[in-house]
């Protein structure tokens, strides 16, 4: 056996009154990055281990929604694809939306699902939430590949603007994190959030420009729309890049990013002020 890396005993002080600052919390989370990573890997494993379809779920879910959307909004309500086919239009926003929805539902339930660990081992309490959101990223990857493979059938117009996809993914990832931190904390105290959540996510689907184009909102209301619902900017961005072939709407994207970041900071701060009681309550 090789000798372990020598560890200088660092003194940790737990004061009954002091609260850690947000920066200190973030630094600690970085120290525990292996733990976040382990939670993420575990999330992916557990999700696909016992599912008969395995990775197929990541493909099946957006396709099922797409079918319903095409039948209902495309044929019955006749929503226009705005320069492209309705199939390309809907799929390009469905995949990122699916990421937000499953990110929030896994993230918000992460602490309750790991109640056993929470009660018995120490790690920064946000680690399971960050891990859960990370664990959904492979699904997003699979979904994006699906969008690209489906291009010949949907008739999406793809150009060089595809280079913005990574940037859009980055902004997109802030949203489930920002939502999961406060929701996850509430879930620890009040178990009915667990039942409220699927309902809220369904509402969220229709409150975001997934089935309909953002152009249905009048131009002077659009910035407010992107501010209140930070999903608007990245979803519209994905749609332009993956279906229409133009650059994202930088104004909307900027507003949404700023709004998501503020939400994240406030949510994180709130989470940290509650976390010391989690193990006693959960």
């Amino acid at each position: 056996m090789t000798t372990p890396t020598p560890q200088t005993p660092v003194e940790s002080v737990f004061d009954g009154k002091k609260r850690p600052t947000l920066l200190a919390a973030w630094r600690e989370l970085v120290l525990y990055k292996e733990v976040v990573w382990s939670f993420a890997v575990r999330g992916v494993r557990v999700r696909y281990k016992q599912a008969a379809l395995g990775v197929g779920w990541a493909v099946l879910q957006p396709l099922a929604f797409l079918t319903i959307f095409i039948l209902f909004f495309g044929r019955v309500v006749k929503v226009s694809g705005g320069g492209t086919s309705y199939a390309a239009f809907a799929l390009s926003a469905l995949v990122p939306w699916q990421f937000i929805a499953s990110g929030i539902s896994f993230g918000a339930n992460a602490l309750v699902n790991d109640a056993d660990l929470l009660r018995k081992v120490y790690f920064p309490r946000e680690a399971p939430i960050f891990g859960a959101v990370l664990s959904v990223i492979p699904d997003l990857g699979i979904g994006l590949i699906l969008v690209l493979l489906a291009t010949p059938f949907t008739g999406a117009h793809l150009t060089w603007t595809l280079v913005f996809v990574p940037l859009l993914c980055l902004v997109l990832a802030i949203i489930p994190l920002a939502a999961s931190l406060p929701l996850g904390a509430m879930n620890v105290y009040y178990r009915d959030f667990r039942y409220l959540l699927p309902f809220a996510l369904q509402l969220g689907l229709f409150a975001s420009p997934v089935a309909y184009p953002v152009t249905r909102i009048s131009p002077n209301l659009r910035p407010w729309y992107a501010l209140i619902n930070p999903a608007v900017g990245p979803l519209e961005g994905f749609r332009r890049v993956l279906a229409v072939g133009t650059t994202p709407d930088w104004g909307l994207l900027g507003i949404s990013t700023a709004s998501a970041l503020v939400l994240l900071l406030v949510g994180y701060k709130w989470f940290k002020s509650l976390e010391r009681e989690f193990a006693d309550v959960v």
Partner: peptide, 22 residues
């Protein structure tokens, strides 16, 4: 639980030197 940081004290100060395995 306090020593292993699972739960936090509501009063006073607790000092722990080094990594805790619980």
């Amino acid at each position: 639980r306090l020593v292993s940081r699972i739960s936090q004290p509501t009063g006073g100060v607790l000092r722990v030197r080094g990594r805790v395995g619980a």
